[in-house]
Measured scan of single mutants.
Amino acid sequence: MMITLRKLPLAVAVAAGVMSAQAMAVDFHGYARSGIGWTGSGGEQQCFQTTGAQSKYRLGNECETYAELKLGQEVWKEGDKSFYFDTNVAYSVAQQNDWEATDPAFREANVQGKNLIEWLPGSTIWAGKRFYQRHDVHMIDFYYWDISGPGAGLENIDVGFGKLSLAATRSSEAGGSSSFASNNIYDYTNETANDVFDVRLAQMEINPGGTLELGVDYGRANLRDNYRLVDGASKDGWLFTAEHTQSVLKGFNKFVVQYATDSMTSQGKGLSQGSGVAFDNEKFAYNINNNGHMLRILDHGAISMGDNWDMMYVGMYQDINWDNDNGTKWWTVGIRPMYKWTPIMSTVMEIGYDNVESQRTGDKNNQYKITLAQQWQAGDSIWSRPAIRVFATYAKWDEKWGYDYTGNADNNANFGKAVPADFNGGSFGRGDSDEWTFGAQMEIWW
């Protein structure tokens, strides 16, 4: 008995050590931004985005507190085989008060198993909700290839000249389909599951310092038995992507060409959309029709120009041509140079221009935006974070068209359509004006 009692403290210590080691193995990653800002004409900070554009130049032009908190852990490992559990909870508030209630979004919860298939060394099996191989332009917060959501897949299969990845994910639309009631009355209240099937071939070395990635995505509306879509709904579509990445000037340049059809055009990033119906009456549900095509040509990157200068840049042309004439032509160009006074202090400027032409009206909206920021960051790279910055932003815009969301679809035949700025004596778009804002912001990723 005495021997047992003497061994007990040692056993407890060993158990505590094991539990401590396991606790220390938890990975904590994430992203956050928050700050305070004012508008020159009075009131809180207002942000500037061109009507019809899918993004905006973000430096000194973000008006919310946003965070993603990721917890993950390698829960099992034997040799080169392992299982990893990953989670991500995100939230966004308007940064107007101390207490701002919000419903967090559970954006990731997945398990990734590496090297589980003997004859596919280096590959990963995964299932669950996941940010899946996302491609974006940081300076405009624009995701041009992103099929994230609940799904499953097999990735990084070594095929000799590259890595092959296969995945299936889902994005549902509210009110996407109906069941038959009586007297030809349909009640569009059932969600429609939109499935996306993704095939990618990446890391193909085609020139010194250059790699090529090719991808095909097929999206479709997956209806339940005895349900139907509204007439004209976009049932399926394709997205084709080619991306060349070149190492240059201690950074990279990415050149991207994408072509999409029908349900893959509205978001243009790989998620299927077009079966959703915002109104019970299918007579007024025309606005979900996105049959047509999209072409996107994009070049972006980040480079170092000597010891003291870094720069991000982007140039993009996007043409969404829809059968219902509600598409757009959008082109944007911008730069973000950074001058480093010390390894932790810099001055950053961002200059961006957007131009969006309405397919329906032929009119154009444009905006110039310039931001000057003094910044303190954890390192001497344009990617170094955390960063604390004080900024001043000036924007000038001239908008000739907007979307008509007055009333509702039952009493407005133009609901959701592009109209000229002065349509029917109204005021659509943001008109011709300018404004400036100033404030302070922190940004961090880890």
Score class of each variant (00 low, 15 high):
72 G>C: 05
50 T>P: 14
260 A>S: 13
177 S>A: 13
356 V>I: 04
354 D>A: 10
20 S>F: 06
273 Q>H: 11
52 G>S: 02
215 G>C: 08
43 G>C: 08
302 A>V: 13
109 A>V: 04
315 G>C: 10
251 G>C: 10
325 D>N: 15
133 Q>H: 01
19 M>I: 12
76 W>G: 12
336 R>S: 15
17 G>S: 11
334 G>D: 00
15 A>T: 01
181 A>T: 11
6 R>H: 01
199 V>M: 05
443 E>D: 13
294 M>I: 14
267 Q>H: 11
11 A>V: 14
12 V>G: 15
99 W>C: 00
9 P>H: 14
67 A>V: 00
51 T>I: 05
274 G>C: 10
233 A>V: 14
17 G>D: 05
75 V>M: 09
301 G>C: 15
122 G>D: 00
327 G>D: 01
37 G>D: 08
292 G>C: 09
342 T>P: 15
141 D>A: 14
266 S>T: 13
11 A>E: 12
249 L>M: 14
220 R>H: 06
208 P>Q: 09
230 V>I: 02
262 D>A: 14
200 R>C: 01
229 L>Q: 08
233 A>S: 13
390 V>G: 15
13 A>T: 07
244 H>Y: 11
140 I>N: 09
298 L>I: 00
193 A>T: 09
234 S>A: 12
39 T>I: 07
428 F>C: 13
236 D>A: 12
263 S>L: 13
443 E>A: 13
446 W>G: 15
239 L>V: 05
35 G>C: 02
216 V>I: 10
32 A>V: 04
328 T>I: 10
262 D>N: 02
322 W>R: 14
32 A>T: 07
6 R>S: 06
14 V>I: 01
260 A>T: 01
223 L>S: 10
242 A>V: 04
265 T>I: 06
105 A>T: 08
170 R>H: 03
287 N>I: 01
6 R>C: 11
131 F>L: 12
228 R>H: 03
5 L>P: 11
233 A>T: 11
21 A>D: 07
18 V>I: 04
338 M>I: 10
192 T>I: 08
219 G>S: 08
261 T>I: 10
307 D>N: 01
52 G>D: 00
225 D>Y: 11
331 W>G: 11
251 G>V: 00
250 K>N: 07
285 A>V: 04
229 L>M: 01
221 A>T: 09
384 S>A: 11
